[in-house]
């Protein structure tokens, strides 16, 4: 008997009516399909420009709908906003208690090592900033012990309320934006496109990069189709929309 690869491919060819390929498991030889040409009448782009007021308004609407927390800030105000959000984490635990409610020490925050240092300039003294990179990755257990992660983003889609990270040094390894319970994600307004095709074509320049599409905090609808935000991924997603970069 031939190897599995050869046989599966032979079966596929037989199913498509290519003679001399043998048969499918039930002994059939199919007919050659005649597929219609692929129409592409859908919208390749939205009617609003990337970063326009319309797409920003739409993105905010969608994110809020997903129970993400949105902060629209100028580039100058960004460090202070990040500092405020991080400081809030040192207060009483919000929502469901974390597995590591160590609030006496300074807040521990992880950042990918390519993150703009300026964004962290206003963090209060005592904040424990740990850096992660592909070369020096933190083990999952350590990521589990940090309170929050700050990352940049690659592109965002307003119609679907989606932010995409592509693993570049300012966005970090996939685990970094996954294990911590709070994700502060910085998105420049000029990164916001209206439609999914616009984003896919942009991402298609580097299809080999590991991509994480994020649309709100993690959620489940597995119990009576009731949506519950916050399961295994970060339970809190802050989106910092930065204008005027």
């Amino acid at each position: 008997m031939s190897d599995a690869r050869t046989e599966v491919l032979a079966r596929v060819r037989a199913a498509l009516g290519q003679t001399g390929s043998g048969t499918t498991p039930s002994g059939k030889v199919g007919t050659a399909p005649h597929p219609e040409p692929v129409p592409r009448a859908y919208r390749a782009a939205g009617e609003h420009a990337a970063g326009s007021a319309e797409v920003i308004e739409q993105l905010v609407d969608r994110l809020v709908d997903y129970k993400a927390l949105v902060h629209q800030v100028t580039v100058d105000a960004l460090p202070a906003t990040i500092a405020t959000l991080v400081t809030e984490l040192s207060g009483p635990a919000r929502g469901v208690p974390s597995a590591h409610p160590d609030s006496s020490a300074g807040v521990r925050v992880v950042v990918p090592d390519g993150l703009d240092d300026g964004w962290l300039a206003a963090l209060p003294a005592g904040t424990d900033v740990v850096r992660d990179s592909r070369e020096r990755p933190l083990p999952p257990s350590e990521l589990d012990a940090v309170a929050a992660v700050v990352t940049a983003a690659r592109v965002a889609v307003s119609e679907t309320g989606t932010i995409v990270l592509d693993g570049e040094p300012d966005q970090g390894r996939r685990a970094v934006s996954l294990v911590p319970d709070v994700h502060l994600c910085v998105v420049r307004t000029d990164q916001v496109v209206q439609t999914v095709p616009e984003a896919v074509r942009l991402l298609g320049a580097h299809p080999e990069r590991p991509l994480t599409w994020i649309s709100g905090p993690s959620a489940t609808s597995d119990i009576e189709l009731d949506r519950v935000e916050g399961v295994h991924g970060p339970r809190t997603l802050h989106v910092l929309l930065v204008a005027g970069v």
Binding site: T160, T162, P210, I214
Partner: peptide, 11 residues
Amino acid sequence: ERMNPYTSLWT
């Protein structure tokens, strides 16, 4: 949903 919370793509 307009989009599911997470989509992972890897190569």
